[in-house]
Every structure is written in structure tokens, then in C-alpha cells.
Amino acid sequence: WILTKFHSTSWLVIDSVTLFLVDLSALINIVTMYLVSKDKVRLLWYLQIIFLAFFPMIIIPYTDTWVLLSVSLILLGFVGISSHSFNLIYRILFSVMAGVATVITYYIKPSGIIPAIAFIIIGIVYLCNKPDKKRLLRAVCLLVFLFGSGATTFVLGQNIISNQKYVSIDKSLEIPSIHFVNMGMSGTTGAYNPHDALMMAKLPKKQDKIAYSKKMIRKRLKQRGLLGYISFLIRKQGYNTADGTFGWLGEGTFIFTKTPASNWKWWAQTFTYPVGKNVSVFRFISQLIWISLVGILFFGWKYHDLVSDGLRLSLIGGFLFLLIFEGGRSRYLIQFLPSIIILIPIVWQSSKETIAKILLATGLKKMEVSQNA
């Protein structure tokens, strides 16, 4: 559809669209942070600039990057709903935004709706902790608009998909969800399994595909046993989250591997091309940034409010999803980056205080004594 609208078949056009979508997602994150805390907006600006500078996936057209815009809109919608700075009318508008964005996300990448589910759960928990008739009625009203806008968008989406002429769809070849659960248990990492994928193409009927997947799940569970499966999940969590480059150059052949020419492009190409002499430098810096970001999240565990808890539950839900379904590579974490990026400035101060206490307790930092003491 996009290539038709641009009257082009150039891959660069799709790359440019991807770049636009990711950058727009980053700008929406800024708006979301403005609603959460104006004082933390500058920190998020710097954070996203540094992060995107070492995120070459920003130009790779794939559902992981294309879904970022709608995921950011989901977070903006739910933050707006939870903000007491707005009256009911504005919060209804935010709920409509969240509902529409959630369904669009579902169509692009179903697992991307996990933040929406997380915020609904956290909202219900907070509501139950402080029950109030007025708050309950307001919450019901917002949920009606949330689900109503989502249902309307879903119906329109189904109609568009049924009538579109760009891609021919054979519903008889549909792959059942249990197949991806089966792949998530295969090998040593729970990543894409070519043999299982081939079987989905060979088996003609959907029931046969389901029966094969169930058979392989039982077989793999029996082979590993309870302790073996727990050990497998621990290792898989590492594969799901450890790589700070998000799988850059780890799969596919989407980059022309000719030695970079000595022109203005050369400097960037040496860091990102498969044959670039500085690829290891790029990997090191990216990993250092990723470890720092994860460290901030880890040490900021003491800070709690509705938004931060919603974002945390989004990440927990994402981790659980990748443990159950196909995973084994950090690229699948890209869809959850808005939750990570927004949560970091929120817990930044709490994380700093926790780290300072640890350094004082271990003697790695000396307590500052006031001269007036």
C-alpha cells in the first residue's frame, strides 16, 4: 500500500517510512513524559538521542519497529486517563486514543498490546485499594469508551483486511498460535525453528498443525523434565534480554556486504556493516548503554505509582510472553522499548539514591559531612 502511494518500489522508501515512525514514536514518548512529570522531559530527550544514535534498527522495516508508534500512543492514552490534571472529557478522549491504538497495535504485532493489558490490571488494583463510588463510576465510563473505540476500530480493520487487494490471503494456511508456543520450547534458546515452520507448511489442515504442535510440546516437556524446563526458561530469559544491539547482524542478509567505500558514508558503515572494522566497537558501546539502562530500572524498584507500576507490569508481561512463545533473541524486546524508555526517567532519582546507599554501605563512597556540622 505504501509503495503504491509513493509510486515507488525502492527499499529506501520503506526505510524512510520506518525512520519516520520510530522518530514519531520518540516524540510521542516526550509528550507522555510531559504529562507524567515536566521536570523529567529533558532527561528523556537526552536518553532517546543517545539510544537512537546506537539503534541501527531504526531503518529496518519490520513489525518490531513499525509497531513502536502505536505502542507509544497506547502509553500516552493510558497516562492521560490516569492523570488527575484533566477533566472527564479529556480523559475520555485519551481512552478513545488508547482503544484505537491498542487495536492498531494488535493488527501490526499482537504482543504489542501487553502494555494496554498491564495498565488495565494496575488500574483495577489501584481502584480496589481505594474504593470510591465516584471513582468507580468514572472508571466504568472510561472503560466503556476504551473498549467501545477498540471494538469499532477492530470491526473497521476486519473490513479493510477483507476488502484489500494488495496481498492475497489464504485463510486455510493460517498457522495456529500453539505453533509459536511449540517453537518457544525448541532448541536451546526457544528461537525460530526451521523444521517446525516447515511442518506447518506441509500439514494441510489446521487441526493437523495443532495436533503436531501439541505432540512436540509434550515430547519436549518430557525430555527436559520439570527442573530441566525451569533451567531452559532461565537461559532463554538471558537470550531474550541480554543483547544490547537487539540482534543487529545476528540474522538475515538485509545489508549489502561489500567493503564500505572511502566516502562520507564510510565512517558510519564501518560501525554497522557486517564487514565494518569497527562493528565490535558498536557492539561494545551498545551493550554498555543497555546494561546502564537495565541497571537504572533494577535499582529503581522502590519507586511506585500507578504509571510506573503499569510500565513495570508491561515489561513483566513482555518477558513472560517471550518465555512462552517464540523468542531467544533480544530483537523481540524492541516492541517494549517505549515502556522501558519512559520508565527510566521516572525511577531515575530513586535508582540514584539506592546506588548511593549501596556504595556507602560497601565503603566505595564516603559520606559527605557538612562543614557546619
Results as ranks from 00 to 15, higher is better:
Y107I: 10
G247H: 07
T152N: 01
K265H: 13
P194E: 02
V67A: 05
Y34R: 14
Q349W: 04
M57W: 15
A211D: 15
L47I: 08
S70V: 12
F254Y: 14
I324V: 12
L233W: 01
Y126G: 06
G363F: 05
T18Y: 01
R91M: 05
P204R: 08
T245L: 03
I2H: 12
A53K: 08
L73A: 13
I342G: 10
T102L: 07
T354V: 09
A361W: 12
T189P: 00
I104R: 11
Q371M: 11
G300I: 06
G99V: 08
N129C: 13
F271D: 03
G250S: 05
E368M: 07
V347G: 03
S186G: 11
K134D: 07
K5Q: 14
H304N: 12
F256P: 00
N372F: 15
A201M: 13
Y126V: 08
M216P: 00
L156E: 03
G187L: 01
F256H: 12
F282C: 02
V155C: 00
L68H: 09
S83W: 06
F119Q: 00
P56E: 04
M57V: 08
M200G: 05
L221F: 04
K130F: 06
K352T: 08
F78D: 04
V17A: 06
Q269I: 00
F154C: 04
R218L: 10
I210F: 02
D23A: 15
H179V: 13
L311C: 01
T270H: 10
Y106F: 15
L233K: 05
G80N: 06
A268K: 14
I114H: 05
Y62H: 11
W267Q: 13
Q48N: 15
I210Y: 07
S85T: 10
F321I: 05
L68R: 11
A201C: 10
R91K: 13
V41T: 14
A242V: 05
V125N: 00
Y90G: 12
D132N: 14
R218Q: 10
V13S: 11
A139W: 12
T153M: 13
L323I: 05
N263H: 09
G148I: 10
V294N: 09
L337K: 06
L88W: 05
S330I: 07
F147P: 04
V125H: 02
W11V: 09
T105F: 06
F284E: 10
D170E: 07
F321Q: 02
I358G: 02
D64L: 08
L146I: 04
F282Y: 15
W290I: 10
T4P: 09
T153I: 02
S95F: 01
W264H: 13
A26Q: 03
T253L: 11
V307Q: 00
L68V: 09
W248Y: 12
C141W: 02
W1T: 11
F154K: 06
P345G: 09
S177L: 14
I255K: 10
L93W: 06
P194T: 01
A98D: 11
V307A: 00
L323R: 00
M183V: 02
T188R: 12
L76C: 09
S280H: 14
V22A: 08
D132L: 02
R220A: 04
